[in-house]
Nucleic acid binder design. Structure first.
Lengths: 266, 266
DNA sequence: CGGCCGGTTGAGGACCGTCAACTGGCGTGG
DNA sequence: CCACGCCAGTTGACGGTCCTCAACCGGCCG
């Protein structure tokens, strides 16, 4: 069965923070006392964004990063002709706009795909975590690496794979990422995307995406309905996609990787 | 005329460091005394790599980053079938594998395209710079942002542009980046790439790349010969590519962007 | 000399985009 | 209440961009 946020939050304070914490804990063992400052801060900076509304505006020099507590977001670039290209999907537990920490204006915009609950991590908090919670700090930066690796894999997806492989690969990636935070079963997950958004992310037309989805259903029994996906045979889908999830960097960090990146107040 | 490294190095100590320093100085005004530790370190860690040889091996958990002092490199991912996809070109003054700082094993390999002179920046040096040379440290991290932005733009290039636009856009990007370090004239630059490498980076076949280059020559007078490119009409090429270089983040950093990222020793 | 590599050209076809039309669901407003 | 419009999804016909396969050229080097 598919887990939802509310069905698994244990305490009021914990509510909504757990996806990020759960993911970070996969990277590294994190003692509870190190997690408290992060969890508290996320709790205090919660906000809600409506579907289709802008979560992070282009040109916004934030100086803080955005954590998706619940819901899906998409990072996209607005092109000269007004069209948009989706560059990344942000799922619960993901961190958006790591580069905002340097004070750079975002050259992309991030929109909410469905109702999104988010929170912010300030530069100051990151500084404090680097000293007071080095393991948490490391895990956060590991997350940034993972995010870059996903960006690179998207390039490969579009550059080298056929339409069928491409869609299948994206679905496998989303499945793996959602599994990590407990938002997928072994054979399916909630997918709050229209075919147009799926098409955009895969650099295809809507029509061809539609036909490709049909093909995936015929080939591997992939079911799309009512905002959810079900893999009748997950291994078949991964095989079609030639999916290898190593790039997600999900395997545990070597703990002797003793660098603790943090931001110093200047 | 095209400038070469040797023709513009002023002092022996300065030799080969100047491309990085020149680029960083575009981001931010850097006092000479802050630059000394960086320049000295680069000087001490110089190494040379032969054409086609591996500069950074896949799986290598470096803990230090690599600076291209001279020559071109390519970051590429080896796929399951043994083929490779080029993800980025690294030009003189560029920094490779920023993620290596966290101790992550590289999931890509970086090869030298021609003879490459490189140097390393250790985590320890970055820590010291963050304290002793905050402006240099900021500029280095700004460079990392620029590198990520280029990665995103490559996705857009492959996702949304036709073959002609795609090649033209890549050429415009390389031109802008080389101009920044003084390695291009207003109408051309040295291009140490085979058509096969150009094709790979643009996700096209060699044959179609060849025909596209011919088309670019017919449309905009772009000349390819003997490892160099000449734009008869640079503005025409940019127009074909719909090139807008804002994503390169070349405009000067706001100096009130007062975050000083650095790595703390743990 | 022969082999290899990079570049070039041609013919044919596949994959995917374009254009067009139609469906069903949903909310709005007459 | 139904009419209407809009949006997401679906299907078909057609065409173009780009890939595949094949061949050839010139330069370089052993």
């Amino acid at each position: 069965m598919l887990l939802t946020e509310t069905s698994r939050s244990s305490s009021p304070l914990d509510e909504g923070n757990s996806f990020l914490v759960r993911k970070l804990s996969h990277y590294r063992n994190l003692p509870a006392d190190e997690l408290l400052p992060l969890e508290g801060s996320l709790q205090r900076s919660r906000r809600t964004t409506q579907p289709r509304a802008i979560l992070i505006e282009q040109g916004e020099p934030a100086g803080e990063i955005c954590v998706i507590l619940d819901g899906w977001a998409a990072r996209q670039k607005v092109l000269a002709d007004g069209s948009r290209q989706i560059l990344a999907f942000h799922l619960p537990g993901d961190i958006c706009e790591f580069n905002a920490l340097l004070g750079a204006a975002a050259d992309t915009e991030t929109i909410a795909l469905n109702g999104v609950k988010s929170a912010r991590i300030t530069r100051r908090l990151l500084n404090e975590l680097a000293v007071a919670a080095p393991r948490v700090s490391q895990a956060l930066w590991w997350e940034a690496l993972s995010s870059n690796a996903i960006q690179r894999e998207w390039l490969i997806n579009i550059a080298r794979r056929s339409a069928t492989e491409r869609i299948a690969h994206l679905l496998c990636e989303l499945h793996s990422r959602l599994l990590l935070v407990g938002l997928a079963s072994s054979t399916g997950f909630q997918l709050p995307l229209t075919q147009a958004q799926l098409a955009n992310a895969c650099a295809m037309t809507v029509e061809h995406t539609n036909r490709t989805l049909r093909k995936l259903r015929d080939l591997a029994g992939v079911q799309f309905e009512a905002g959810s996906v079900d893999f009748a045979d997950p291994e078949a889908v991964r095989s079609i996609a030639r999916f290898n999830g190593d790039y997600l960097l999900l395997k545990e960090m070597r703990s002797e990787a003793s660098s603790t990146p943090f931001l110093g107040a200047s």
